[in-house]
Every structure is written in C-alpha cells, then in structure tokens.
C-alpha cells in the first residue's frame, strides 16, 4: 500500500481523465474520481498486487445537494484487503443530469444487490448491471427517497391505499364504551 502522496501520483498518472484528489481522514485514505472511470480504478485496486483489495465491503452513496462537492452525488465504495487488513474508500462523483456510471458487478458479484440498493434510493444508473431494478421500495415506487430534495414524509405514498370497509353486516356502533 502506498502512502497518500504516492497514491495520488499513481492514480493521477494512470487515470488523468477521471482522477480528482486523494484525502486522508485519520488514516482513512479516500480516492476521489469521476464516475466514468470507476470500473478501471476499482479494477486496478483489485488486481494490482500493490493494492490487492479483494473484498468489496459496501457500496453506498451521498447526496451533496446541501454541502456541495465535485458533483451532486458521490458513490462510495469501501474496499478491504483481507490479507493485510487494509481498507480504502473510493468516491465516484456523478452529476444529477447524467447519473450514470459503470457497474462493478464484473469485479465483485456482491455488487449486484448493493448497486440495486443505491439505484433504488438515489436513482443512479449502473451501466452493465445484470438486473437493475428496485430492491427495497415497491416496484411501482416513483421517487428516489434518499435524495435530499425528497421530503422526509414522502409525497403521499403512505396514504395511497384502498380502504377496506367492515363487511356488510358486521357494523356495530363504532363508538361504544366497553369498560
């Protein structure tokens, strides 16, 4: 594993189009890249013996609508090297207008459901994913609820169901004191 400065130089030279920066927070190195280069960067991190991050712990995303950043969304990849117990984080930044980036399903099969979850909650499209459909919300759900411009209490989905009445005969007075 390279220290921060050399890590930044390595990725700047290897991926000049997509590299943004490397940050270090309390020893947690984070590589920031543009979304279109994510597949190649992660392939390097997986296959290059200097990194050998063989395990994809998690994929999640952040909506930077309020605090700002390189773009509106960043997809966060947590990688683990199981032999050296080393970790690294990759932020892949994508715009709101074109929220597309390559699926890493070809590198780690576990990306299947994790990318579906990010798609379900943020509406980011993973190109090349074998089965990109909603995983948590109902299939006919229309919005992407973890986006910051989606209201916490929804847009009426939770009160939009048919009302089942009591069956025809069994209507006793609704308000009775049963004490």
């Amino acid at each position: 594993m390279l220290p921060k400065r050399e890590l930044a130089d390595f990725f700047r030279n290897k991926f000049p189009d997509s590299f943004l920066e490397v940050t270090d927070f309390r020893g947690m190195l984070t590589i920031h890249i543009r979304g279109r280069g994510v597949l190649e960067v992660l392939r390097t991190l997986k296959t290059d013996p200097r990194f050998a991050f063989n395990f994809l712990c998690d994929i999640t995303a952040v909506d930077h609508l309020v605090q700002g950043g390189h773009a509106r969304f960043s997809v966060v990849y947590h990688l683990l090297n199981q032999h050296g117990a080393r970790r690294i984080v990759v932020h892949a930044w994508v715009d709101e207008e074109n929220p597309k980036l390559d699926s890493v399903y070809s590198l780690w099969k576990t990306a299947d459901w994790q990318e579906r979850e990010v798609f379900d909650l943020y509406g980011l499209l993973f190109q090349g994913h074998p089965n990109l459909r909603r995983i948590l919300n109902p299939d006919d759900f229309k919005f992407y609820p973890l986006r910051k411009d989606y209201p916490l209490q929804g847009r009426g989905e939770r009160s939009d169901f048919p009302v089942v009445e009591r069956s025809i005969g069994s209507k006793w007075p609704a308000t009775q004191d049963f004490e």
Binding site: N137, P145, L152, Q153, G154, R155, R158, S159, F161, R166
Partner: peptide
C-alpha cells in the same frame, strides 16, 4: 416512524 415508507396507522385502510 414518521417517514415516507411507514403507514401512519393501519386504521386508515382496515377496520
């Protein structure tokens, strides 16, 4: 759970 995904009382739809 006053959120978009949780029914705010099943009595809205069931007796």
């Amino acid at each position: 759970f006053d959120t978009y995904s949780v029914i705010q009382g099943i009595d809205q739809f069931l007796p």
